[in-house]
């Protein structure tokens, strides 16, 4: 009996064409377009991800493949004269990095300490923040030009390790100041309050407490800055010069070879010789390994930083 009634109702509905809202063709078509849009959208992030991962993996794969092909003991220990090896470039790169780190780390860390510990939110701090933002955005070739004009030409240091290292340190400074300041700012206020309550002077508090808490973060910033310096070419082209022999250790008027220069100058872009091209592939391989391992170490450090 009941069943019969339902059926009649349905029949009546259809006859009078009174539709439930979800049966309305307009609603249905809107629903379909919404669904279609959504499924089209689902593809978009994946496509863009592939578009970016494919070149990255291709770069890593290609240089790893070529690098393993050309790596050899002579190419790692020979001098560049006659395209034998990259020893002087490797030593030169580390020499430049050590020199610029020695210049910039004290500067950057102390700048960060001042802004985080002595004058938060002062005019001076605001100005330094602004200038750091500008400095971080100056193209490295412009820094290279300024270094060339001031250090190489005007001050007469010539193409040299010192000119290159000072230019690199300008490049690294913003990163180190900002990370130092940031990690010091993250040290909990309770620690500062406890130190003050115990009668610590500011000097003791910074050296014994806050700096130690902020150390992983500061080291991360320094490592990131160093990895940027490792990969820098344009800033060094006209400040460091180029050399086929081991760096003499002299700071001025003694040109130094470095890895990125080998990549730029020995690649097929500039050099037709296969022996030179092989060195460029090897240099690229070494540079990628160095930069990526520094980045990985730094990111592990970052993770520790965020736990404070």
């Amino acid at each position: 009996m009941k069943k019969y009634k339902e059926n009649t109702f349905n029949v009546i509905d259809q006859q009078q064409s009174i539709l439930q809202p979800w049966q309305d063709p307009r609603v249905l078509s809107r629903y379909r377009t919404r669904k279609l849009k959504n499924s089209l959208f689902k593809i978009f992030p994946i496509v863009s991800l592939l578009a970016i991962l494919y070149p990255l993996l291709d770069i890593l794969y290609m240089f790893a493949y070529k690098g393993v092909q050309v790596i050899s003991f002579t190419r790692l220990t020979g001098l560049t004269s006659g395209y034998v090896g990259l020893a002087n470039e490797i030593v030169g790169t580390f020499f430049l990095i050590a020199l610029s780190s020695a210049i910039v780390i004290p500067m950057g860390v102390s700048g960060g300490i001042y802004m985080a510990e002595f004058s938060r939110k002062s005019k001076y701090t605001e100005m330094v923040h602004f200038v750091i933002d500008i400095l971080a955005g100056v193209p490295s070739i412009v820094l290279g030009y300024a270094g060339y004009l001031l250090l190489v030409l005007y001050l007469g240091c010539g193409f040299s390790a010192l000119a290159g290292a000072i230019t690199l340190s300008v490049l690294m400074l913003p990163y180190i100041i900002r990370t130092t300041e940031l990690s010091l700012n993250r040290v909990p206020t309770s620690i500062r309050e406890a130190a003050t309550a115990l009668g610590c002077t500011k000097t003791t508090m910074i050296n014994r407490l806050t700096l130690r808490f902020a150390l992983p973060g500061i080291l991360t910033g320094i490592l990131l800055a160093i990895s940027i310096a490792f990969g820098e070419t344009a800033a060094l082209l006209f400040t460091t010069g180029a050399s086929d022999y081991m760096p003499t250790g002299a700071l001025c008027n003694s040109q130094v070879g470095y890895l990125t220069y080998a990549i730029f100058q020995f690649s097929p872009f500039q050099s037709p010789f296969a022996s030179a091209n092989n060195l460029a592939y090897l240099a690229a391989f070494l540079l990628i390994i160095i930069v990526l391992s520094i980045n990985i170490i730094a990111r592990i450090g970052l993770r520790r930083l965020s736990k404070i």
Binding site: I59, G231, T233, I263, F264, L292
Partner: peptide, 9 residues
């Protein structure tokens, strides 16, 4: 983090 000269190469 990959240096620009590597991208260029």
């Amino acid at each position: 983090g990959i240096p620009s000269v590597i991208y260029g190469f």
